[in-house]
Write a protein that binds this DNA or RNA. Structure first.
Lengths: 396, 396
DNA sequence: TGACTTTATTCAAGACTTAGATTATGGTCT
DNA sequence: AGACCATAATCTAAGTCTTGAATAAAGTCA
């Protein structure tokens, strides 16, 4: 249904321009001729467009390829220092602020420890704002060169300018993080769930690269997720889709911290695994405690694999994805030791259709990709914006 | 990343034309002026486009609205007899072939009983082809006026020209139904899973109307489903997404006919409910048997509701849909008596986010909507095609 | 009848992509 | 070295498309 918006000739150019920019960004340096092939546009259009982009300094030349009997082709690429993106990871134990250039090379960072019990929203916001100033200074750039700030937070983020955050683990009921930050900076702001930002990092630069239909399952203390449908993140009607952690695997089963019972998170989140194994650990040494349980050969481990397999098979049946990426620190720890078993458990529950166990893979980016992923939110917006830039007319 | 195809100026018109046609189809009769508002196109564009469409006879005038102080507006609508669509429902007990005009009014029908045990592919194909001829004759139209044939079948349909069908209940392993039919007719053919076609009927004309993010859960002997994401059916990488029936609700639970364990279908499909209640019934009197069980107050009933609630809550967390539609004959029977309980069971498992129980609704179209939905596949293609028609140039 | 409204069409202008011609830049052959 | 060839990039003319403004059409109301 969805009346898909009328389109005018300008939209056309915008769309094509954005496509060309994406191709250049992900396809590395390429000649104008290569771009014709990749984008399907005619040489003429590519020529005028790259001309504009070069004039705007969004794109720069990047050497040339030796010819074999003809004019050598000039390579182009997105100007890595056209602008910068800041990514923020609001975690359980610290707030991390990192500055990236357009090629996602880290230029500066600032970390602030947060005492576990105290996640005062004001304090978190202040840390972020201080961090932003710090990385701008350390990176030796001006605020004007920053294209925006991406923030990854736990819990559910309501769409809207205030970016209301609900995060049980922080005791945040409806914290207007967006509003708090906007009071201290005028840079564009993009707030999203940390699992989603991490997932997007995997999608762009990690194990999910190149897929159109994928699912990221991100296991830390709890379990989060992200669904990629037709090449973009699926967010659902209220922007809350992808809560893989609360997929039910045992109706009426173990109580979950969300209040319901039998959620996947109540079995395969690190916190749940430790609880079931009878290990007491605070969030600081959760990692080593989990490693201990996994080594112990406890029956909890095989049960965990079973549950994860059941959950993943549900995902396969519902989404029929090309790939499932397991990430997050607990996911990487579990998957690193038991990937074969996880694949087998999933396959055992997925008989109805052809399913290749090896389409379940581990994330490549490690657990600290939340900030990186948050920065990609900025880049994403940049692609949309860059397409507009041309039509800005100044009144003298 | 999916390079989203370059666009040319022609694509623009195609897109806008298709949009206008859809608006007219679903928005009932409307004046050119109304269409400006709905589509966002300028009056000039609407005028030339409707001119083309009128010339092609795809659109016709439909009276006019009395003015109040100005030129009266002429109403337009899609020409209901511009063409016809045939919908086929390949069911357990019969093959139903129905002829619809563009407004989806039924014009003719032909049903053929199939003995339960014998689902010979050749025989089914012959029934369909005979039925097609029969309804064309009965409808008093010529084959040339038929825009296509949509077929809804059980099981999974592989994409491709052969339309390989895998249907356990029929004992079909890889039946090339598409190829079989194409041998007997040259009309365009669209084969899809029956649950999906039924879901599409609900989406277009039933309880799903107007939603962009919805889930259809279709319960008959087994359980099927369809996912609507951003206004269109989500099919996944291998076109097999939406298998709601094989969502796990109890890891390691009851064996399901798919071979795995603990699937939703193993608890809430009619066959499963009867089995669990210890009732023996063949497919002919499954309906009355199920009604009996539901009336009996057996504990199986409340367990069924629990399981369904668990499954639906998984769907809510994963997809965050605007609406969930329960359909299929068993679904309607169950939901007709126990909708409140089902809503409560779902809500009990969905504490983490705001969720309105009343977004779970019953289907409005009854169980015989498979053929109707199959016919919508033809209409959908018609929208795409009609946008092209203009550019056909004949060489004299 | 004439003033006023509202709807629909026509027209010139501006934006965009394309195919084909042209220019640019280097290699290769004699 | 100079003529010739191959490939890349740009320029040009043509064809589509949407749009806003002007114009035509078809009423109502006093």
């Amino acid at each position: 249904m969805g009346t898909p918006q009328r389109r005018t000739v300008r939209d056309l150019r915008r769309g094509n321009r954005a496509m060309l920019l994406r191709a250049l960004y992900f396809g590395g340096p390429a000649s104008r001729n290569d771009l014709c092939g990749v984008t399907g546009l005619s040489a003429a259009t590519v020529s005028t467009m790259t001309g504009d982009l070069l004039a705007d300094n969004v794109v720069v030349e990047a050497g040339q390829v030796d010819s074999d009997g003809g004019r050598p082709r000039v390579l182009l690429r997105v100007n890595p220092v056209y602008g910068y993106a800041i990514g923020v990871d609001v975690g359980e134990t610290q707030v991390r602020v990192e500055l990236f250039d357009l090629e996602m090379k880290e230029r500066a960072r600032a970390h602030y420890a947060v005492r576990s019990a105290r996640h005062d929203p004001e304090l978190v916001a202040r840390h972020i704002l201080t961090g932003v100033d710090a990385v701008i200074a350390e990176g030796g750039i001006s605020a004007g060169q920053v294209l925006g700030i991406g923030v990854g937070v736990p819990g559910i983020v309501e769409p809207g300018p205030d970016a209301l955050v609900r995060a049980k683990t922080f005791g945040w009921e409806a914290v207007p993080l967006g509003a708090l930050l906007r009071a201290g900076t005028s840079l564009p702001l993009y707030v999203d769930n940390g699992a989603k930002t991490m997932g997007q990092a995997e999608l762009w630069f990690g194990s999910g690269r190149g897929t159109r239909d994928a699912i990221m399952v991100l296991m830390g203390s709890g379990v989060g997720g992200m669904i990629v449908a037709d090449g973009s993140i699926y967010r659902g009607a209220g922007k809350a889709a992808g809560e893989v952690g609360h997929l039910k695997v045992v109706a009426g089963g173990r109580p979950c911290r969300c209040g319901a019972r039998g959620c996947l998170e109540a079995y395969v989140g690190a916190e749940a695994i430790l609880e079931r194994a009878g290990v007491v650990a605070d969030s600081a040494d959760e990692e080593s405690a989990l490693a201990g349980v996994l080594e112990s050969g406890s029956p909890v481990v095989s049960e965990t694999v079973e549950m994860l397999g059941a959950g993943l098979s549900s995902l396969v049946h519902l989404f029929n994805p090309e790939r499932i990426v397991i990430g997050g620190w607990a996911g990487l720890m579990l998957g690193g030791r038991l990937l074969a078993e996880i694949r087998a458990a999933t396959a055992a529950n997925t008989l109805a259709q052809p399913f290749h166990g090896d389409s379940i893979v581990l994330g490549r980016l490690g657990a600290d990709a939340v900030a990186l992923g948050a920065a990609t939110l900025v880049i994403e917006a940049f692609f949309r914006e860059a397409a507009f830039r041309q039509s800005v007319t100044t009144i003298a």
